[in-house]
Amino acid sequence: MLASKEVGVIGLGKFGFAFAKALTELGCDVVGVDRREDNVRRAQDLLAQVYELDATDEKALAQAGFQDLDKVIVSTGSSMEASILVVLNLQAMGVKNIWVKAISEEHERVLYKLGVPFVVFPEAFVAFQLAHRLVAPGIQEYFGLGKNVVTREIVVDKWTGKNLRDLDLTNTFNVQVIAFRHSGESEFRFVPQADRALEQGDVLVMLGKAEDMMQIENF
């Protein structure tokens, strides 16, 4: 189980509520917010803290303590405008680790342009996975490389200016960097060069055992 962390979930509709529930089951202390009373009431007995508020109001988010959270997930339903306003509020508050549910490809592109490190497009992801499983049965076994083998995305911060050869992640942590994405871009590139200097906001995708991935947290 993951170490306990405080995570914020903005928007407690179907996706946001399911995400918050899964995080709670993984041992996270979840702070949830929603502007709808029924969504707040449904989550009150499940989450550590729940607030009924409008997340497009930066002062309201600050009063709920979102500037102090490790990670924040934004799932504001069908409003692209509201989602963007919430992201801008979080960035103004100094929150760096932001995950956002996109509702369209246009929304996804805008979020990446805003510097959001992680964009989730559930419908497109599920459709892609199901289509591949239908056309080529067994392709999901690509991830079945062994017990507890996972991929992990890490946003470059402390590693800015270093390169993969300097970090030597393979020998130090038994993980392999398999792809990377420049900050502000939406497409990943594969087989990264070992001598390329990493830039602030770059995203690295690593493959390895879950227990090894967790050791990288404070590296």
Results as ranks from 00 to 15, higher is better:
45 D>H: 14
25 E>I: 03
154 I>Q: 06
132 H>A: 10
133 R>F: 11
193 Q>I: 13
65 G>Q: 03
124 A>Y: 08
42 R>H: 10
198 L>H: 04
107 H>R: 00
89 N>I: 00
199 E>P: 08
181 R>S: 03
90 L>W: 00
171 N>G: 13
19 F>C: 05
207 L>E: 00
114 L>N: 00
25 E>P: 10
75 S>D: 02
216 I>Q: 02
53 L>W: 06
129 Q>F: 14
208 G>Q: 10
83 S>M: 07
61 L>I: 09
39 N>Y: 04
79 S>K: 05
52 E>Y: 02
166 D>V: 08
135 V>E: 10
123 E>Q: 05
99 W>A: 07
180 F>R: 09
76 T>L: 06
63 Q>T: 01
29 D>R: 10
193 Q>L: 15
50 V>H: 00
130 L>A: 12
135 V>C: 03
57 D>M: 13
190 F>M: 06
211 E>S: 15
33 V>R: 13
157 D>F: 14
23 L>W: 02
154 I>G: 09
219 F>R: 15
28 C>G: 05
185 E>I: 03
184 G>E: 07
176 Q>T: 05
32 G>P: 11
150 V>A: 15
208 G>C: 06
146 G>E: 03
7 V>L: 11
173 F>W: 00
187 E>W: 07
90 L>S: 00
87 V>A: 02
88 L>G: 02
7 V>E: 06
